[in-house]
Simulated scan of single mutants.
Amino acid sequence: MSAPETQLAGFIARFTPDIAACGTEVLARLAARIPEAERLVYDNYNALAVGFGPDERASTVILSVAFYPRWVSLFFMQGAGLDDPHGILKGQGSTVRHVVLTQAGDLDRPEISTMIDQALVKAKKPLPVDGQGRLLIKSVSARQRPRRPGPDIG
C-alpha cells in the first residue's frame, strides 16, 4: 500500500465497520469506473470526503464520496444542473446535490448510475481520456467531530 492509501485507510478505520465497509467499496467501485480521475482526500471537521476530478484542484471535482458517522453520501458537485427525473438528488444549494447510499450496490441502481454518467459528461472540466489518477491527501483538520455515532450526534 502506498503512503496515501495507508493514510486513507487510517482515516476510514475511525468509522464503524459498516460505514467503513460501505464507503471503502463505494470508493473502489468509483475508482474502477473512472480510473483516470484524481482522488482528493479531505479529512474535514464534519466528514471524510474523497473527491474524483480531472486534476488536483478541489474546484474541478465532479463527484465526491463523504463518510459520516451514520451514512455515506455521493455528492454531485455540479448536481444542480443535472436532470433528475426520479427526484433522487437531495439539496437546495445553487450547485451541489447528493444521494445517501445505504450500500455500495446503490451505485448500480439505474437512476444513480445514469446520474453519475450524466455528471461526468456535463462536467465543466472533463476527466482525461486515459491515464491513471493518483490518490492525494489534500487536508486533514486538526479538530474533528466524532467519526462514530454517539448520543450527542443527531
Rank of each mutant, 00 (worst) to 15 (best):
V65G: 07
S73E: 11
A66Y: 12
R97K: 11
I19V: 14
S64Q: 15
M1C: 02
G87I: 03
I116E: 02
D55A: 09
V100F: 02
D55V: 10
Q132I: 07
P4H: 04
L89A: 08
L89S: 05
P149F: 09
D43S: 10
R134Y: 01
A20Y: 04
D152H: 10
G87M: 02
T6D: 13
Q92W: 10
G91N: 11
A9I: 03
R97P: 07
R14W: 01
P146A: 01
G93H: 04
P149L: 07
L135A: 06
G93W: 09
L107S: 06
C22M: 13
G91A: 04
Q118M: 11
V61Q: 13
T114W: 09
R14K: 15
G23I: 04
G79R: 07
F11G: 00
P151I: 00
D106W: 08
T102Q: 15
R14H: 12
F11C: 03
A142R: 14
G105Q: 08
V72Y: 04
L127C: 01
V140N: 01
P35K: 00
A123Q: 06
D130E: 13
R14D: 14
D83W: 00
L30Y: 08
P149R: 05
L74K: 07
Q7K: 15
W71V: 11
L127G: 00
A123T: 05
A58E: 14
H98S: 14
N46T: 13
T102L: 11
L135H: 08
L135G: 03
P128R: 00
D18G: 01
L8Q: 09
M1I: 09
I112K: 02
S2T: 15
P128M: 05
P128T: 08
A32F: 06
I19W: 04
Q78C: 09
Y45V: 13
I34V: 15
R147N: 01
G79I: 01
Y45T: 14
F76K: 02
S73Q: 11
A58G: 14
K138A: 07
T60P: 05
A9S: 08
A123C: 03
V129E: 13
S139N: 08
L48N: 01
T24D: 06
M77Q: 14
L127S: 06
A3T: 12
M1A: 13
A49C: 11
Q144E: 10
A20T: 04
V96M: 12
P149W: 07
G81Y: 03
